[in-house]
Simulated scan of single mutants.
Amino acid sequence: MELKAAALVSALLCLALSRGALSQRARAPIVETPAPAPAPRHVELAELLSLAGPYGKFLEYLTKTDVIKTFQSQANDTKQGITVFAPQDSAFAALNETVLSNLTADQLRSLMLHHAMPRYYQLSAFSALAAASPVSMFAYKVNVTYAAGTIGVVSGWATAKLASSVYSTSPVAVYALNRVLLPKEIFPAAPEMAPVPAPAPAPGRGGKAMADAPGASERAASDNAGAKSSSCRVVGAGSLVLGYVVLVVSGFLMV
Rank of each mutant, 00 (worst) to 15 (best):
V142W: 01
V142P: 03
V142E: 08
V142D: 07
N143W: 02
N143K: 13
N143G: 10
V144C: 00
V144S: 02
V144I: 12
T145P: 06
Y146P: 06
Y146V: 01
Y146K: 00
Y146A: 03
Y146N: 08
A147G: 07
A147Y: 11
A147N: 15
A147R: 13
A148W: 05
A148F: 14
A148P: 05
A148Y: 10
A148C: 12
A148L: 09
G149F: 04
G149Y: 06
G149Q: 11
T150P: 02
T150V: 11
T150E: 13
T150F: 00
T150L: 11
I151W: 04
I151A: 04
G152W: 01
G152P: 09
G152M: 11
G152S: 10
V153W: 04
V153F: 08
V153E: 03
V153S: 02
V153D: 03
V154K: 10
S155N: 14
G156K: 09
G156Y: 08
G156H: 09
G156N: 13
W157K: 13
W157P: 06
W157G: 13
W157E: 07
W157R: 11
A158Q: 09
A158V: 04
A158F: 10
A158S: 15
A158K: 01
A158E: 05
T159A: 13
T159Q: 15
T159S: 15
A160V: 04
A160I: 10
A160S: 15
K161W: 08
K161I: 14
L162T: 05
A163Y: 08
A163V: 10
S164L: 12
S164Q: 14
S164T: 07
S164E: 07
S164V: 04
S165H: 12
S165K: 15
S165P: 03
S165M: 14
S165L: 12
V166C: 10
V166A: 08
Y167Q: 11
Y167C: 11
Y167M: 06
Y167H: 15
Y167E: 04
S168W: 03
S168G: 06
S168A: 15
S170P: 00
S170R: 15
S170A: 15
P171D: 05
P171Y: 08
P171F: 06
V172Y: 05
V172F: 05
V172W: 04
V172I: 10
A173T: 05
A173W: 00
V174D: 00
V174P: 03
V174S: 00
V174K: 03
Y175N: 02
Y175V: 01
A176T: 05
L177W: 00
L177Y: 03
L177I: 06
L177E: 01
L177N: 05
N178M: 03
N178K: 07
R179D: 02
V180R: 02
L181A: 00
L181Y: 02
L182H: 02
P183N: 09
K184Y: 03
K184N: 04
K184G: 00
E185F: 14
E185M: 07
E185P: 03
E185V: 13
E185K: 09
